[in-house]
Simulated scan of single mutants.
Amino acid sequence: MLRILLAEDVAMVRGAMVALIELEPDLKVVAAVKSGADVVSTARSCRPDVAVLNVDLPVMDGLSAAAELRTEMPYCRTLILTNLGRSGTVSRAYAARVSGFMLKDSPPEDLATTIRNIARGRRVIDPQLAVSAWDSGQYPLSTREHEVLRLTAGGADPVEIASDLHLSVGTVRNYLTKIVTKLQARNRVDAVKMAYDSGWLP
Score class of each variant (00 low, 15 high):
residue 120 R to N: 14
residue 62 G to D: 00
residue 37 A to C: 08
residue 59 V to Y: 02
residue 25 P to D: 04
residue 31 A to R: 02
residue 96 A to T: 02
residue 47 R to H: 15
residue 172 V to A: 03
residue 178 K to H: 14
residue 10 V to F: 15
residue 120 R to V: 10
residue 182 K to Q: 08
residue 196 Y to Q: 09
residue 52 V to W: 01
residue 17 M to G: 10
residue 3 R to F: 10
residue 85 G to S: 07
residue 68 E to I: 09
residue 56 D to Y: 02
residue 9 D to Y: 03
residue 105 D to L: 14
residue 146 H to R: 04
residue 173 R to V: 13
residue 25 P to Q: 04
residue 43 A to H: 01
residue 117 N to Q: 15
residue 106 S to D: 09
residue 177 T to G: 15
residue 194 M to D: 10
residue 196 Y to V: 11
residue 142 S to E: 06
residue 76 C to N: 03
residue 77 R to Y: 08
residue 89 T to N: 09
residue 58 P to A: 05
residue 138 Q to K: 11
residue 119 A to Y: 05
residue 26 D to W: 08
residue 175 Y to P: 10
residue 105 D to V: 13
residue 77 R to T: 08
residue 34 K to F: 11
residue 201 L to T: 10
residue 36 G to W: 01
residue 6 L to D: 01
residue 160 E to N: 11
residue 47 R to D: 14
residue 84 L to F: 13
residue 195 A to G: 13
residue 59 V to N: 06
residue 198 S to G: 15
residue 163 S to K: 13
residue 76 C to H: 02
residue 78 T to V: 12
residue 165 L to S: 07
residue 8 E to R: 02
residue 144 R to S: 14
residue 126 D to I: 10
residue 154 G to T: 09
residue 174 N to P: 07
residue 185 A to P: 07
residue 72 E to A: 10
residue 26 D to V: 12
residue 167 L to K: 06
residue 124 V to F: 06
residue 148 V to P: 03
residue 175 Y to V: 09
residue 137 G to R: 01
residue 125 I to W: 00
residue 130 A to W: 06
residue 12 M to H: 12
residue 35 S to D: 09
residue 180 V to T: 08
residue 191 A to V: 10
residue 13 V to Q: 03
residue 56 D to N: 03
residue 113 T to S: 13
residue 149 L to Y: 03
residue 156 A to N: 13
residue 51 A to Y: 00
residue 190 D to T: 11
residue 186 R to Y: 09
residue 178 K to Y: 13
residue 23 L to C: 15
residue 130 A to D: 06
residue 188 R to L: 15
residue 185 A to H: 01
residue 64 S to Y: 01
residue 62 G to L: 01
residue 100 G to C: 11
residue 136 S to Y: 04
residue 142 S to L: 08
residue 94 Y to M: 11
residue 103 L to S: 06
residue 75 Y to E: 15
residue 96 A to P: 07
residue 35 S to A: 11
residue 63 L to I: 07
residue 139 Y to N: 04
residue 110 D to M: 13
residue 59 V to H: 05
residue 49 D to S: 02
residue 119 A to G: 12
residue 48 P to A: 05
residue 102 M to P: 13
residue 45 S to M: 10
residue 72 E to M: 07
residue 50 V to E: 01
residue 66 A to Q: 01
residue 165 L to M: 05
residue 83 N to K: 10
residue 172 V to G: 04
residue 102 M to K: 03
residue 125 I to R: 01
residue 33 V to C: 05
residue 149 L to E: 02
residue 73 M to I: 11
residue 69 L to G: 06
residue 150 R to N: 09
residue 44 R to E: 10
residue 96 A to L: 02
residue 55 V to H: 03
residue 106 S to P: 13
residue 151 L to I: 08
residue 97 R to K: 09
residue 37 A to D: 05
residue 133 A to D: 03
residue 64 S to T: 06
residue 69 L to K: 00
residue 191 A to R: 05
residue 88 G to C: 05
residue 166 H to F: 12
residue 23 L to G: 13
residue 10 V to I: 14
residue 187 N to C: 11
residue 108 P to W: 04
residue 13 V to I: 14
residue 102 M to N: 06
residue 68 E to N: 12
residue 169 V to R: 05
residue 56 D to R: 00
residue 199 G to Y: 10
residue 49 D to R: 00
residue 45 S to C: 13
residue 111 L to M: 11
residue 163 S to E: 12
residue 174 N to C: 10
residue 195 A to E: 08
residue 153 A to Q: 09
residue 111 L to K: 07
residue 189 V to T: 12
residue 38 D to L: 09
residue 60 M to Y: 04
residue 122 R to V: 11
residue 48 P to Q: 04
residue 180 V to W: 00
